[in-house]
Design a binder for these strands. Structure first.
Lengths: 214, 214
DNA sequence: CGGTTAATTGAACGCATTCAACACGAGTGG
DNA sequence: CCACTCGTGTTGAATGCGTTCAATTAACCG
């Protein structure tokens, strides 16, 4: 299946750098792209598939950092070590560039700027995540999450590459609470789940209202 | 009071840029440096005082983004508008540079790189914040917060420039819960509060244990 | 001093969690 | 095709943590 239409191949310097420097790698479902505490010396760009980043605390609790889709860039962390690991949620293809390679790339200034922009985008996502975790109720969190997935794709039916546990660990909830929220959203005829991994938005405005104030 | 010793004035390109391009501004306690939804066209660097960033949701809930101390750089957000506002917690002096000015500064590449590094540092702080809000209990959150303040300063007695409400809004809790956590930490003889705005760590290891697993 | 705001403490409530049972779906082998 | 199993998701009941509401105390500032 071609995913070219999913990825805007504009003449962005960073994308150029990926195109010209980036090795192509494939990963299978559930395979780790890199692990927490690995050396952080590469950037990634997704061509197809979905990737999850996550961090395990010493006592076994897990926090999912984010979910990345085709066109997204991730792995931008600064430190010598990865603070979050990255795992393939589905089979996927990614472009990988070494940090050092980008550094010596002709037109470096423009590439640096582009990396900065990608990092700032990541920062915004993290800010949204903080707002979500800090000040939103359970139903609100689930509504926001599913809405953001729905608005990412133009399709009517949206499929969920992640399971309930992944959602829960992203939203700072338990699977049971996520499940109940989904049941509730179905009961209100706001969403429809033909299967556990697919859903459709029936009442957008109601969903938006919920997302704004639970 | 001189704060020169608090700010490492190394020959870092970004600091240079601030020194050479940065206008000096002063703000009084509780004054806004900029507001949420203002145009985001400036970077800031603190010389003295403490700054808080915060965001208000439409229904009045508030999330504190972070607290910034002398030497810290903030206001790096990408979008055209500020997602978080910035307010002075104490009287403070800051260096301000226009984004556009930095762009045309000689040695621009190095400055861009330095901004990138500052942004990545900010990203790390946000990641920590996500971990805190997603997967930690109330006592744990308060312990982590106070520990991070304590490790920032070398002093034995640490003072709290922010009130309980600010802590609560940073930690995703209520003032009452924060207060109870503090009382508990005093009861365990882990911390000592000579006044509500000053504290001292009595048992570091116990505090670290609490911070790791509540 | 009073007057005002901030912080603490107490008691009742509620939301999310926990623990436990059940349902569903996919894959396997009889 | 059905029985079995394993992993995942849903549902129910009870518990508990943090919130809410309310009252008291402490700190700050004229």
């Amino acid at each position: 299946m071609s995913v070219a239409h999913l990825v805007e191949s504009a003449g962005c310097p960073l994308v150029d750098a990926f195109e010209r420097l980036g090795g192509l790698s494939s990963f299978r479902r559930n395979e780790a792209l890199y692990r927490q505490d690995d050396p952080a010396d590469r950037f990634y760009r997704i061509l197809s598939g979905v990737v999850r980043t996550s961090r395990l605390t010493s006592d076994g609790r897990r926090q999912v950092g984010d979910f990345y889709y085709p066109g997204d860039i991730f792995g931008l962390e600064t430190g010598p070590e990865r603070r979050f690991g990255a795992e393939a949620l589905t089979d996927c293809e990614v472009q990988v560039v070494r940090r050092a390679a980008v550094r010596t790339f002709a037109g470096q200034a423009a590439v640096d700027r582009a990396i900065l922009e990608a990092t700032q985008l990541e920062m915004e996502r993290l800010q949204d995540h903080v707002m979500l975790l800090g000040r939103k109720g359970a139903l609100e969190r689930v509504a926001i999450f599913l809405m953001s997935l729905a608005s990412r794709e133009a399709d009517l039916e949206i499929d969920l590459p992640m399971g309930r546990q992944d959602m829960a660990d992203y939203l700072g909830l338990t699977i049971e609470t996520v499940s109940r929220a989904i049941t509730h959203l179905q009961g209100e005829a706001i969403l429809n789940f033909p299967s556990t991994r697919r859903f459709e938005v029936r009442r957008w405005t109601a969903l938006e209202t919920l997302a704004a104030r639970a």
